[in-house]
Design a protein around this nucleic acid. Structure first.
Lengths: 136, 136
DNA sequence: CCTTGAGTCTGTAGTGGCTACAGACTGTAC
DNA sequence: GTACAGTCTGTAGCCACTACAGACTCAAGG
């Protein structure tokens, strides 16, 4: 018996590209179900854990928060009717992402302009510092 | 004597748009020098504090870390020779910002595509969840 | 002078999403 | 049997704040 024995945390880590400490952290905060344990207390992961962790990592890669991912996981497990909710979550997240992009673009413009002024003249004072020190 | 008496932390907060708790935090971590105190222990800020805090807030607005800002402040105080260093700092920060923008744009594309598929078909399964659950 | 109420004080703890230990134990290959 | 990599728990740190509790202070009005 016990033919398919599952894998240890290190193997799960290599397979998913997720740090060991992070895997344990996900378990602690309830994103990954607690796996079975060996006699000596080692975690033993099944293929379902691999799938779940990949889901989490992918969602993190898209910038979803752990809270949002918890919801997505519930929806994925939940079944029907979930699609509209998942879509809404993804859409509102997309709005966030676009907001961040435009914030960063504004930042980029301001920074680039500041740096550019260093090239322009050989002022007595530093344009970078001046820009940050402006009076109004 | 004591004609110009300085302002309290609340007034500094309104003037700079910086949270009171954040002002105290900046003092704690050495970004803002500790001001004089009233007999009762209230912080009394001078115009130099207003300028310094504005500098910090502006730099934060451009996404500099507190550590980078500490350096910028040293450079601003330090005087000559500082310009090249300040410029280098700003430039490397600009590289970071551009990196973040392109990461977010990739995210945006992937998210938008995922959401779009919800519109396309009336699949039995949710494209958002499917995308996150992919096997490879 | 006294009271009221807004302002301020210190200190501590929480946030998110990890990451980094220390010190003890386990599993496995030789 | 023993070496050594892997894993365990628990705690603390990171960044840049934010949010309290409970005590105190200051200015204005009566």
């Amino acid at each position: 018996m016990s033919r398919s024995s599952g894998i240890a945390i290190g193997a799960l880590s290599t397979r998913t590209g997720c740090n060991i400490e992070t895997i344990r952290y996900y378990e602690r905060v309830g994103l990954l179900p607690a796996p079975a344990r060996s006699a000596g207390g080692y975690r033993i992961y099944e293929p379902s854990h691999v799938r779940r962790l990949r889901f989490v990592r992918r969602a993190r890669g898209l910038g979803f928060t752990l809270d949002e991912i918890r919801t997505l996981l519930d929806l994925a497990d939940g079944g029907s009717g979930a699609c509209a909710e998942a879509r809404a979550l993804a859409e509102s997240h997309l709005v966030d992402v676009r907001g961040k992009i435009s914030d960063l673009r504004a930042m980029e413009t301001a920074l680039a302009e500041t740096v550019r002024q260093c090239d322009v003249g050989r002022q007595s004072r530093c344009p970078v510092i001046e820009a940050l020190s402006a009076d109004d």
